[in-house]
Design a protein around this nucleic acid. Sequence first.
DNA 1: TAATATAGTTAGCTGTTCCTAACTTGTCAA
DNA 2: TTGACAAGTTAGGAACAGCTAACTATATTA
Lengths: 145, 145
Amino acid sequence: MNVRKKLSASSEDYLEAIYNLVSLHKVARSKDIAESLGVSRASVTGAIKLLSDKGLVDYKPYGYVYLTEKGGKEAAAVAKRHTIIETFFVKVLGVDQQEAESAACKAEHALGSTIIPRLLSFTEFYCEQDNIAAEFKKFCKSKGI
Amino acid sequence: MNVRKKLSASSEDYLEAIYNLVSLHKVARSKDIAESLGVSRASVTGAIKLLSDKGLVDYKPYGYVYLTEKGGKEAAAVAKRHTIIETFFVKVLGVDQQEAESAACKAEHALGSTIIPRLLSFTEFYCEQDNIAAEFKKFCKSKGI
DNA sequence: TAATATAGTTAGCTGTTCCTAACTTGTCAA
DNA sequence: TTGACAAGTTAGGAACAGCTAACTATATTA
């Protein structure tokens, strides 16, 4: 409980998966977590125990998994980073949705509180500029990208 | 030797450190690798063995560490990703050099061949635009960032 | 309600990445 | 040349992240 230490990428992934499942189905089941992360059920049990030790998840054997308040905040933060990065990839770089999604999944663990707010601001700023996206597309085409 | 598998973030870090040390001092010593990655000398020995098994590094106990041709290519690719990301952070997002460097260190393992070329193109494109950096600065100020 | 299918857990293993402590090897200077 | 210090390695261990196989609990349904 209450270990003040940065979460591993893996733990963040589990937290995010739980967060998304809860958003969709009100509840997160071990099997669905396993499926959404492409991991065995046994691995989920192990990961959940770690999260539980850190006070991020409420869990009793054979029961559903719930985020604690603290876990919910962490998860929401990860999900937000994910969205900001994905949006930047799509709206600014012009990457297609699926690629952007899977790239954001990896990058969300690497970018912190210096980069993320600026990335968000930049995306907002960029989207306000008239025509610039079209200009960039032209630029890319001229370079054969 | 010749294991066709994606390198771990850790292996990429070691490769990059060796690459940078060789660029600077013609030679990479275990102690300097340890120092530049903030890791114990024993960890370096272990990591070097892994890289050697993969044919990325030439190494004899108690000798210097050299990159093989294959290792050199890998290392250069990592270093290039690093530069592209760092440049984007500085030139586009306006993050200061040091922050950009350390953030790029983490992100370089997460961004792949979809995102990196686009990020590079985008940075080039952006730097060609007159005044836009100043506009973004204004935008940030107006939002209190 | 009893049998069975599904979900979850446990045990035990592998591999990675780091550590410290203790040892070996190499180098330099008195 | 040798002895001390620096550099490198080995051994052993911890934490994490995954796996399979075998077990247990829960839920469904005939």
